[in-house]
């Protein structure tokens, strides 16, 4: 039987009268690439914050990497990685300094950090820029470095919040190759995106509308279910029903 790494049960978050996330239930398996889609304001960020242990739910249950989202938020944070376009690396530190900093934050030993630094710099082809400030790197390199740092402590799950905005199609694909590789090595990937072709790269995906999960399946099955040929059309059919926006 497949190991479950995220289990959400009627997970709900209210802000006053507003139900941002409304009783969502789903499971994510080990090594799976799980796409978490929805229009702006559908409740994705709120749900993701609860799963990362950054926001306590109003009701419902969830376990992430086996830890409870109410009581064991610190353990959750140690067992996940997180990357978004808005926050990733310290731009006024060098490549190597960023690796050392995050390695330290995640509790790696000096020796581990040294070994990881060499491995990452070599694998990502950053040898010539290892002492350069991150601010001077092209966006695509930053994103690849940022992702590699987000999984530097071998987390069970990595959360990616719109990780690929604004890069060229080739760089975007190189980034996804890193994601495939991580998943292949058993790291579960939970990703939000506005690119519908990236939705196709996921093993399974959920689509949120007005705080609720309105569809959850593999891209192939969703396209069959909605009798369309692309994920873009699936998304359009569902999200058009939304009555609220951000």
């Amino acid at each position: 039987m497949e190991e479950i790494v995220i289990q959400a049960d009627k997970l709900t978050k209210k802000f006053g009268d507003f139900i941002a996330t409304n009783a969502i239930t789903f499971q994510v398996h080990k090594g799976e690439i799980f796409g978490f889609l929805g229009a702006n304001g559908a409740g994705k960020t709120t749900a993701m914050r609860m799963l990362c242990g950054l926001s306590i739910p109003s009701s419902g249950d969830a376990k992430v990497a086996g830890f409870d989202v109410y009581k064991e938020t610190e353990s959750i944070k140690k067992n996940i990685g997180y990357m978004s376009q808005k926050f990733s690396l310290y731009e006024d530190l060098t490549v190597v300094e960023n690796i050392r900093f995050f390695g330290g934050i995640y509790g790696l030993s000096d020796n581990e950090i040294k070994a990881k630094t060499e491995e990452l710099v070599k694998r990502l082809g950053l040898t010539s820029v290892r002492k350069k400030l991150v601010v001077d790197l092209p966006l695509g390199w930053k994103q690849k470095l940022s992702f590699s740092i987000a999984i530097i402590h071998q987390p069970r799950i990595v959360f990616l919040d719109e990780p690929t905005g604004g890069v060229d199609p080739l760089t975007r694909r190189q980034f996804w190759e890193l994601i495939y590789e991580a998943a292949h090595n058993g790291i579960t990937v939970f990703v939000t995106t506005h690119y519908m072709d990236e939705a196709e790269y996921c093993d399974r995906l959920s689509i949120m509308v007005d705080g609720m999960i309105k569809a959850l399946d593999s891209p192939k099955n969703l396209k069959e279910q909605f009798q369309v040929t692309s994920m873009d059309q699936v998304f359009y059919k569902l999200a058009r029903q939304a009555t609220r926006s951000e």
Partner: peptide, 10 residues
Amino acid sequence: TTGVDPVSRK
């Protein structure tokens, strides 16, 4: 349309 969801983009 950067950062805007596919429905609003259309």
